[in-house]
Design a protein around this nucleic acid. Structure first.
Length: 349
DNA sequence: AAGGAGCCCAACCGCCGTCCT
DNA sequence: GAGGACGGCGGTTGGGCTCCT
């Protein structure tokens, strides 16, 4: 069987015209090999992972398998009706070119899964409307601010990053006020300066509630004249979210929008820690490398979000909890009930 | 029971941007 | 600056499942 796989794989690479041999499902053994390798060496350098793990796969294939199926923070349960509805709304706003953008609203979901939902709904719609209906163009220009997330699927990480979103959006007025995704690489020197200046002042960054209030008013003001009633419901949601954040504990870690910015700030201001979301996730993986037992325990408990933050103390990494939202607070309680003496850190992503 | 249609979703492809040497 | 490696993203494909006839 292994020889057959080897032959098929090589044939597929050499001769893409062999459709029957091109697609090969990943079996459990391959998953175990990949997990074991990543646990030991980390999830980067995917070509190296593919070569050294012994898997007869390409680097991209390994990466996709990890990202879409094996990553411990993936949410595996089916999309809810509310999530699907919200994907449709986002798709209308951003169009087909923004399929990855909704990711920030759906922590633990993959771009592939969201894309499949989009495709499925689009096809269904086309069938219902008759054949050969061209895909709908974006119904409105990109939003300056993200629309409110559905209550049960709110990705707290997205809102936690609002300060820099707000900052960048307000500066990029020449860019048609295009909304900048938190994961966007569009980070310029002035953005780094903003972060550094913010950190060096006593109370430099506006409070979360101030930012959300400002965002709410901008959002409502800019839409009130054209839409009407729906925006009032949005306002109610935002108000409740703001109140929730006001009532909740403060985070212990500052976040930047990219690893590069985080590194720059950390280098220029010794002792100050600015972690990007991906860095925090990476740190959590390093601090709490899982083994098979932990992984099974987590699967048994359906743990999908692990709200924990990290900070430096005297040059050493320390673990701290910071509930990101009411949803995450529930997860903390859930984690506490785990029949396991280790907790996973990390962030919604 | 059998076969086809519809659907879901994992896997793959090609292009492109970023980073590193 | 050039070129290769790498990874992200949008689009596509194929396998398998369910439902209906």
């Amino acid at each position: 069987m292994e020889m057959q796989y080897l032959i098929q794989s090589n044939l597929s690479a050499a001769c893409p015209a062999l459709p029957a041999l091109r697609r090969r499902p990943v079996d459990r053994g391959e998953d175990e090999i990949l997990l074991a390798y990543i646990t030991k060496h980390g999830a980067n350098k995917w070509d190296e992972v593919a070569r050294k793990s012994g898997l007869r796969r390409g680097g991209k294939s390994c990466r996709l398998r990890w990202k879409n199926q094996l990553h411990p923070r993936l949410k595996k349960d089916p999309f809810t009706v509310e999530e699907k509805d919200y994907i449709v709304q986002l798709h209308k706003h951003y169009g087909s070119n923004g399929l990855s953008l909704p990711l920030m609203y759906f922590p633990g979901r993959t771009d592939n899964a969201i894309k499949n939902i989009c495709n499925s709904l689009t096809k269904r719609k086309q069938r219902a409307a008759g054949k050969n209906v061209p895909p709908a163009a974006p119904s409105s220009p990109p939003l300056l601010l993200p629309p409110p997330p559905p209550p049960e699927t709110c990705g707290a990480m997205a809102w936690r990053e609002l300060p820099s979103i707000q900052h960048m959006s307000s500066k990029r007025t020449t860019n048609n006020d295009t909304f900048i995704s938190p994961s966007s690489p569009l980070m310029e020197d002035e953005d780094v300066e903003f972060w550094i200046n913010s950190l060096m002042q006593d109370d430099p960054v506006p409070s979360m509630e101030d930012l959300l209030s400002e965002a709410l008013h901008q959002h409502v003001d800019s839409n009130a004249s054209s839409t009407g009633g729906a925006e009032l419901q949005d306002a109610d949601f935002w108000n409740s979210l703001i109140q929730e954040l006001i009532d909740g504990p403060e985070p212990l870690v500052q976040f930047a929008n990219s690893d590069n910015v985080a590194a720059d700030v950390h280098e220029m201001i010794p002792g100050e820690v600015v972690a990007s979301a991906s860095t925090a996730v990476s740190l959590s993986d390093q601090l709490f490398p899982y083994d098979d037992m932990d992984y099974e325990v987590m699967q048994q408990n359906s743990i999908t979000n692990w709200p924990a933050g990290y900070d430096f103390d005297d040059g050493e990494l320390q673990q701290n909890f910071f509930p990101l939202s009411r949803q995450s607070t529930m997860d903390v309680d859930h984690c506490a009930e785990m029949p396991c003496d280790r907790l996973w850190g990390g962030l919604d992503f």
